[in-house]
Design a protein around this nucleic acid. Structure first.
Lengths: 263, 263
DNA sequence: TCTCTCCTTATTGCATGCGATAATCGCATG
DNA sequence: CATGCGATTATCGCATGCAATAAGGAGAGA
């Protein structure tokens, strides 16, 4: 069972997958999504790149370039872009192309608002229903967060998001997992855009408190903590944004009018 | 089975008149039914068909057949299916094809659980913040619901879903609108699968109560009413399902094992 | 008669080609 | 000098073709 296509095609694109086909090992299904098809691979790669700001918000995503980059055709890139558009990480403008989503502050607030509701559902479902091994996993994760807090900024942000994903996965509710995944992705993007440095680090202790409340089975407290945790994260980011970025935000329309930019 | 005899009429690949900038083909404008792109048109059409149970859950959706049906190529059908898969209305199985989502009772419960959280967010955002014209619109809608209640079953179900969408739209929160749209779609599918007749009709009065609470600005009450409204709708449907469908549900794994089906 | 294997066939996954659309630039003109 | 307009080019939208995979059936052997 080979994966590379037989050489009939004159075009030999560099196929990154051709370098050894590791048989999919048995993996922890709760933690690992899955490699899946090429489309999903590209989708996932783009998602990561967007979240990590390797691709700036508003950046154009030409199908050709993406296809070449990932060693696939435009078709795959196109499909991945379409799905990311459904997720809200990409803006798809007809006959104009795909762009990295460039959420405004208002959209950011909207997303955080939805996230608060979703994660309250998460805590409501988990409180008092976590198995021992899950509690262990959560506490270990929190320790990992603490260990990189203040050391590795990027990793800290990534783990902070991952913590919420971990909680969501523990509900076993597939839809909830999907939605939380989406909002966490988008919130990461927003925090990267508007948040100040260290705004994510502050969450470690709050995460610990949430874990404790969940362990006690105190659903109202857990939900309350989660809500305030998210509210404060959003609040700090937005406040900071107001001081640091809002000027640019306010000026954008004028600049656009001057330059004749049509957005 | 013949091979795709491409749509033939609607669009001719060889269009000699396209040369020059003469009078734009009139038929082009009239024939062109596309509100947006073709993909989205197909996506929307399929979504409607699935929700209205024109396509049974579990039904296969071959790309060729869809393309032929809609007068497009497989590419469009394929992309639409991919996006619907992201929305959860379609199951995409690698190398096997696309199928109409066939949610189990557990998935149904999961979806309703998420929906409850989302719609509580909606009520929380709307309570006491609705303009007069919006209140008028809501009350008029409720009256419309009442007028068809017990008369037109299908329409009644459709309007019941539409009411929740209307509320979500009034928040102005785009993400919330999208999520509520999705869960309402999927809940419609689930109710159509597992719900008993008339299960949706009962909602008219509850809708009225919610409207009243929103008008008074009583957020907790509105959220509470909404939550119980959805819980009861789900509960009735699931209860009925338990009596009517669960046997099949329980037997499925065994049947699968016998036949060697792996899903 | 049952089963195993191989072959046929329908359908997916992916790549590429072609026409069309929108952006860009040069050019001519008031 | 600014402005409007036509040609060029880059990119998108979409259709189609080709290889690969999975499903189904026929035939041979036990």
């Amino acid at each position: 069972m080979k994966h590379a296509q037989s050489g009939a095609t004159s075009r030999s694109v560099n196929d990154p997958t051709a370098k050894g086909k590791g048989p999919p090992a048995i993996e922890d299904i709760t933690v690992k999504p899955m490699p899946a098809s090429r489309t999903e691979a590209v989708q996932e790669a783009l998602r990561q790149a967007i979240i990590e700001q390797k691709l700036r918000p508003g950046a154009k995503l030409p199908e050709d370039a993406l296809g070449e980059t990932f060693g696939t055709s435009r078709t795959i890139a196109r499909e991945a872009l379409g799905r990311l558009a459904v997720e809200g990480l990409v803006d798809l403008k007809p006959n104009k192309g795909a762009f990295v989503a460039n959420p405004t502050l208002e959209e950011g607030r909207d997303i955080f608002m939805v996230r608060r509701g979703l994660e309250q559902t998460v805590t409501g479902l988990l409180a008092g229903r976590l198995r021992a091994d899950q509690m262990t996993q959560l506490k270990a994760f929190n320790e990992k967060e603490r260990s990189v807090s203040g050391v590795d900024e990027k990793e800290s942000i990534r783990l902070a998001g991952e913590f919420h994903l971990l909680l969501a996965r523990m509900t076993g509710n597939q839809l909830l997992i999907r939605y939380v995944t989406e909002v966490v992705s988008r919130c990461s993007l927003i925090l990267a855009m508007y948040g100040r440095p260290h705004s994510a680090d502050c969450g470690v202790d709050e995460h610990a408190e949430i874990i404790a409340a969940l362990e006690r089975g105190d659903a109202p407290k857990a939900s309350h903590l989660m809500d305030h945790h998210l509210e404060s994260v959003a609040g700090r980011a937005m406040l900071e944004a107001r001081a640091e970025h809002d000027i640019r935000e306010l000026l954008a329309p004028y600049a656009a009018r001057i330059k004749g930019m049509t957005e």
